[in-house]
Each structure stands twice: as structure tokens, then as C-alpha cells.
Design a protein around this nucleic acid. Structure first.
Lengths: 323, 323
DNA sequence: CTGTTAGCGCATTCAA
DNA sequence: TTGAATGCGCTAACAG
């Protein structure tokens, strides 16, 4: 930067200003500075900038997994918004583990982000303490909470499970099963499923798959569910991936869908519309949730709002041929 | 940190050392320091550390899109490796645009990463210049290159397209079509496809889809391809997603696969094994590619190797029922 | 094994 | 509109 300043015949302070508040520098010197920057190939050091100003322009984000999953769309939404506002997203994955989330929280806080986006509302006490001591705005996503750390941008997973189950009941299905992963949010959806059945005094049939939403496990566990409860005439899956896996298993068995068994998913992924028959599913605004989370976060950081807020982005049952 | 030092009765220098090189501090003081850290709730400032040491322990990575895609597995591989070695991954997406890649390169370099992982080997001249001036190790992935910036960990997209096409020829298909996106790597695969057909003096039938690997476009464009060239008896798709989309379109039309038309994909995603019939595909070690890229990068950063190297991670044709 | 001195590259605060 | 002094929190290089 001093090289640039020398070349432009000004002090480094003026260069710094020209970069951050161009209006407060005379048009003439500004042009000289810009030319000097080009000639020297100067790339501002945001690390030093962050240290000096105590504002890094970095937003940290923790998601359960980086690998190809549902959460990436939320990351994209957040990233798109942040980029247009001069912030960079720093993403880490917890591997679906609260312990790892706690550890990652500390690592990320070490980078002094201006804000933090979390997935879910379950966090270890130590992580909660770290966050409150860090005194930076936080947004929790993919769930709602009664005790938010700060702000929340999510939807009710319990409500989602309930809504879909009620839909299946209304459609006339008698023996409704549940196929899902065992993670926190899926369990909440399961609670909603159970609640909806209980309203009608019906029994629950739950089959959990191990690991994330792998399609492999879906076929296998769908099979288990159907063997335990052959009378099942509809299955609610906590993800379209699982539902598609179950559908393929039906194709292998020569079972008609929804004739032999109806299937419903969650997420409204691309695959849901393309599969034959297309999947009834629950649409969640994944991308928009990320965008809104980032928006709420910047509002807090730049002090346009002075206390945590909660945004329910909702969901919507999309009825298609599979159920 | 001074608080910690005071509480432990040592200088801040000793605290700094206890954190980075525990062995060079006496076990006794180390314990005192650790306790003090716990009491104060000290979280080391990696921004200041980065500025002082000129080593940020950050690796930047540019991928075409953050949203749910093939590249996320590579990100996960890199992230997993880096984490166990004390580095953090900073990911940005170029939106499949070289212009955006160039811009993002500058932004990311501003964070002073210790190394950089790129997707692909096509970069704008200005981006290349920025990178060489930054003088940090770089690894290009998802392709091989004759003029690497530094190191490369990838495979030949052209070779992959050629290998799959040859496989289809060997299997006895006469009229082989190509369905793919228009991005750089898919185009190389197409070149390989064309080369393989040329060996036999056969004509190419290429149908490009717009945008990324959306399943929606797959069915539509597969239809276009089949209408233009009804005699087509096999289609090579540059992604399993596209192949699955084409398969579903066949199901809608009541076409037997591979009876009416055979389908081959690329990627060996979960979906490839689950769909009915399972997809013949080209396996690419996506996760491993990210891991190896990170490994090669750290070797360069920590100066265990003194010049750029090229790693060909290869690919493998996986024959299944669809072709 | 531990402490001292100096400075990383920039931004804040003031004064000119 | 511009510049000078000072410090952000930490570490490199040395000395003890």
C-alpha cells in the first residue's frame, strides 16, 4: 500500500480512504490512486484491515455436511446475498455432530467473523456460552426455537411433519408409515407425524435409517418397514431422496405407486418432479432461507435492528401423483 | 491474551508458545496457562496471528457453484484433510463464469490464504497473473493441463468421454448420441466422444442443455435429441443427473431401457445404483480428488516438495444394466 | 525454558 | 480534502 501511495504522490492514509470511502477523496487524486493500484498490482490485505478495524467482513456458517446435500442451497442463498454486500462466507461442517459443532464454533470464532449462521437450534452449553461471549450476531436456521441465541430464520419441522401426515390422512390412507434419518430435525418431523396420527388414534410405524439421506439406505429400510407392517399403504419420508429410493425399490418389486403404497417426500428437489410418478412433497424455501438469514444477520451487524428477530419461512405441501 | 498471561503469571509470549509449540514450554507453566485460558474463556485471534506470522492457515477454494452439486464432494474431501492439519477452507463460487472467477480470485487473495484450490484449468489471463504474483501454491482440479499454474490433481475429461463412448461402441450400439451441459469440462468430454466416433467413421449427435445439470432440462433435451435422431440407440450423458432425467423421460414414454435406447451417465452418484435399471456410468473419485488436492497443496506450502506436480486420479467405466 | 523488542498492514482519531 | 501518530493482537528473532 505504501508503494501505491508513493506512486500516487499521497499518503497511505489517502489510499486507504480512496478504497473504502471514494467520495471523501478528490476525484483527481482518486484517479491517480486507481492508476497506481493497477500498475503495482496491489491487492488490499483484508487480514490487516480486519485486525485494525475489528471488522473482518467475514460471516461464518456451520452446516451438518459440506457434501452434496440439502444445505448447500441455503449456503448458496447466504453467499449470494453476502457477496453483494461485501462480505465473505466461511463455511464449516459439523458432520451432524454437536460435539464437532462445538469445536468448530471455537475455531471459527478465532477468525473473528462479524456474524455467524448456524443450522438447527440444538447446541451444547459450552457452544452457547462461547457464542454469547463472542458478542456477535447469530442466526439459527432450519428450525424455530423458543430460546433463540439471537435471531432465527427457519420453519417448524414438527409442523411440517404434522402437515404432511394430515394431508395423507385426508387423502384416505389408513396405515401411514414414516421413513427418516435420525438427526435432530428429522426427529422433530417424526414427532409431528406421530402427533397427527394420535389425533386420529392411529398407531405410528417408524423406520429410521442410519447416516445422512443416502438413497442406498432408503430402499433397504423401506423394505424393512414394509415387512414389519405389510398393511402400510402410505409412507412419509423425511427427504425426497429417501422417497425416491423407496420409489425405486417399489419399481424393483413391481409395486404400483400409489396403488400398492403411496409415497411422500420432503424438500421438493428437482428429482421430485421428474421421477415417475412425480412425488408429493413438502416444499421448503432452502435458498431463500439462506438469503433471509444473511439479510437478518447484516441488519443486526450494521445495527439497523437492535434485537434478535424470528422469521418463519414456512413450508407448503405440494400434491403430486405419488400420494 | 495478556489477561491469560497475567493470570498464569507469565509473559504473553509464553502463552503464544504454549498454544503453538506446547513442547517448548515446561509442563508446569503449560498447565497453569491452560487453566487460565479456561477461566478467561480465551479464544486466540487468528486474524492477528495471521497478520503477525504472515501465515493465515486458510486455504481458499473456488468451485463453479455452491448449490447442491458434484463439486461439494470434492470440497468435503479437501475440508476433511485440511481440518486435521489445522487449516480452514474458505470457499467461493464462480457461478460457472470465468469473469466471476477472476473477480473472486482477487477477493480471496485479499484474505491472504496460504494456498488456493481451483476447479478447472481455464482461467483468464488477469487471474493467472494475480495468482503468479501472489506467489502462493495453487492446485487446479477436475481436469489435467499442459500449462499448469503450479500443481494439478485431476483427470482427463476428454479421455473420460472417449472411454465411455468406446465402451458403448464395444457393446454394439450403432447410433450413439451425446447429452451434456455446455461448461468447459463437459465440452472436453464431448470432444472425447466425437473422437471415439471418428475412429469408427461415425457421425456425432450432440444435444446441449442450458445451465447446470438440472434434471428438468434433461428430459426435455433428451426428447429433442431423440426427435432429431430417432435411430439413436444409446445416449452418453455427461452426468448421472442428466442420465437419470433421460431415464425418467423414457419411463414416461414407455420406452424400454436399454431396449429402445441405452443410457450412460457420469459420476457414479448414489442415484446411479438405485434407479431402475441401474446406470452404467463413469466413476470419478470426487472426494479423493479434493483430499489429494489438499494434500498436494500442504506439501507445497510446508515445502516438502519444491515444484508443482501433476496427479491423475483417473476414472473407471462402471458397467450396469442401463447400457 | 522464558522474556524483550519490534513490527505485520491497515484503520481510527485527531489535527492541519 | 489530506496527513501524522498510534494501536489492533499476535509472532519472529533474538537475548537471557
Amino acid at each position: 500500500m505504501v508503494d501505491v501511495a508513493r506512486l500516487a504522490g499521497v499518503s497511505s492514509m489517502t489510499v486507504s480512504r480512496a478504497l473504502r470511502e471514494p467520495d471523501r477523496v478528490s476525484p483527481d487524486t482518486r484517479r491517480r490512486i486507481e492508476r497506481a493500484i493497477g500498475r503495482v498490482g496491489y491487492v488490499p490485505d483484508l487480514v490487516a484491515s480486519g485486525l485494525a478495524s475489528q471488522r473482518t467482513k467475514v460471516i461464518a456458517m456451520i452446516i451438518p455436511t459440506l457434501a452434496n446435500s440439502i444445505f448447500n442451497d441455503t449456503v448458496q442463498g447466504a453467499s449470494d446475498f453476502l457477496r453483494t454486500h461485501g462480505y465473505q462466507l466461511l463455511v464449516g461442517d459439523s458432520g451432524y455432530s454437536e460435539e464437532e459443532e462445538e469445536h468448530l464454533t471455537m475455531t471459527l470464532l478465532g477468525r473473528r467473523p462479524d456474524g455467524l449462521i448456524l443450522t438447527g437450534t440444538d447446541h451444547r452449553p459450552r457452544a452457547r456460552r462461547l457464542l454469547s461471549e463472542a458478542a456477535i450476531p447469530v442466526v439459527e436456521t432450519w428450525e424455530l426455537s423458543n430460546q433463540p441465541l439471537d435471531s432465527v430464520v427457519g420453519f417448524s419441522n414438527r409442523g411440517a411433519g404434522q402437515a404432511m401426515t394430515r394431508y395423507l390422512i385426508e387423502r384416505g390412507y389408513e396405515h401411514i408409515g414414516f421413513l427418516g434419518t435420525a438427526d435432530r430435525r428429522a426427529v422433530r418431523r417424526c414427532n409431528g407425524y406421530e402427533a397427527a396420527l394420535k389425533e386420529k388414534g392411529r398407531p405410528a410405524r417408524v423406520q429410521l435409517t442410519e447416516g445422512p439421506n443416502w438413497m442406498q439406505g432408503a430402499g433397504l429400510n423401506f423394505g424393512k418397514l414394509m415387512e414389519k407392517h405389510p398393511e402400510t399403504d402410505a409412507v412419509f419420508c423425511t427427504s425426497d431422496i429417501l422417497a425416491a429410493g423407496a420409489l425405486f425399490e417399489c419399481q424393483r418389486r413391481g409395486w404400483a405407486v400409489p396403488g400398492r403404497v403411496a409415497l411422500a417426500g420432503l424438500g421438493d428437489f428437482d428429482i421430485a418432479t421428474e421421477v415417475v410418478p412425480p412425488l408429493t412433497t413438502l416444499r421448503i424455501p432452502r435458498y431463500e432461507m439462506g438469503r433471509r438469514a444473511a439479510e437478518v444477520l447484516l441488519d443486526r451487524i450494521e445495527e439497523r435492528v437492535d434485537s434478535g428477530i424470528t422469521v418463519d419461512v414456512g413450508f407448503e405441501v405440494i400434491a403430486r401423483a405419488s400420494a
